[in-house]
Design a binder for these strands. Structure first.
Lengths: 141, 141
DNA sequence: TGATATATTAGATTTAGTCCAATTCCATGA
DNA sequence: TCATGGAATTGGACTAAATCTAATATATCA
């Protein structure tokens, strides 16, 4: 996991939201503070639990609303690793993920699929939205 | 979608199951008949509905048990495209998927990620289980 | 200030998937 | 042929992620 800030240097949370066309309410700023202070992979429930632990007054519905909004606006990326866990990744730059099916760990890996290969094969009448690469791994022996 | 049989020529459903170390009960044979007669992507519920429509006596629990068993034994591949849809792919050979977020369509694409790139980056103490590439697309304009 | 649009909320609802305990199936051996 | 026991199947209860709803709160602007 990359521990650098997910925010470009010198850019605060409010700016980050405003520039994405998101009205910076107090809940959104607080959740953004949790999500964007470093690259990480969190589930909706983990975000909710962290928020509560930090004393932020927010409901589960708002956590989901906000996560979906951030995804729509390109600030977060959703990663589907199995039927019961959606992760939200604050690193929206192209990269792969390792998913350990034994312990649920999700880690990053440099890499991207050749654009031209994909563009040449796009189904008729569609445009590219994103590429998700999940490499499933198991603990050895 | 590839419409060729997912079964090698001259190999029937019973053999396919037995060779995978799966005891070929009547429900399993019936479900295998639905799943493996051609390459396709089905959800658990679609499998259940087709089975019922064909007059196969089977419960939802058995559909889930059987799908999970087939996945464990390498006969099916799970594809997670969003939080509420798991597809089962009867093509277990390496390939990519296009997922149309507007209409839910899932289609195949030739392609694979370079093995050496992945092997060089495997997390400590893990072994490769599989690589899932999902290219999200939207309908144009 | 009042009017309006947007955001938040608790709790109900939905739904994919799993769990459970009872029943059925079936290969084997006496 | 029948009895035995392990495996498979079953309906229904259950779980948990995510969405929906309608009421309330908050912010903007005329």
């Amino acid at each position: 996991m990359d521990s650098r800030s997910a925010l470009p240097a010198g850019k605060d949370v409010r700016n980050h939201l405003s520039e994405a066309g998101i009205y910076p309410t107090s809940q959104r700023q607080a959740l953004a503070g949790i999500l964007f202070n470093r690259h990480q992979h969190l589930t909706a429930d983990q975000v909710y639990e962290r928020a509560r632990r930090e004393g932020i007054k927010v409901s589960r519905a708002t956590v989901y609303n906000t996560l979906n909004l951030f995804v729509d606006k390109g600030l977060l990326r959703e990663i589907f690793v199995n039927a019961s866990h959606t992760f939200y990744d604050s690193n929206v730059h192209p990269h792969f993920h390792f998913y350990n099916i034994d312990d649920g760990q999700l880690t990053d890996m440099e890499g991207r699929v050749a654009d031209d290969l994909i563009m040449q094969n796009l189904p008729q009448g569609t445009v590219l939205d994103g590429v998700d690469v999940v490499v499933r791994v198991r603990n050895h022996s």
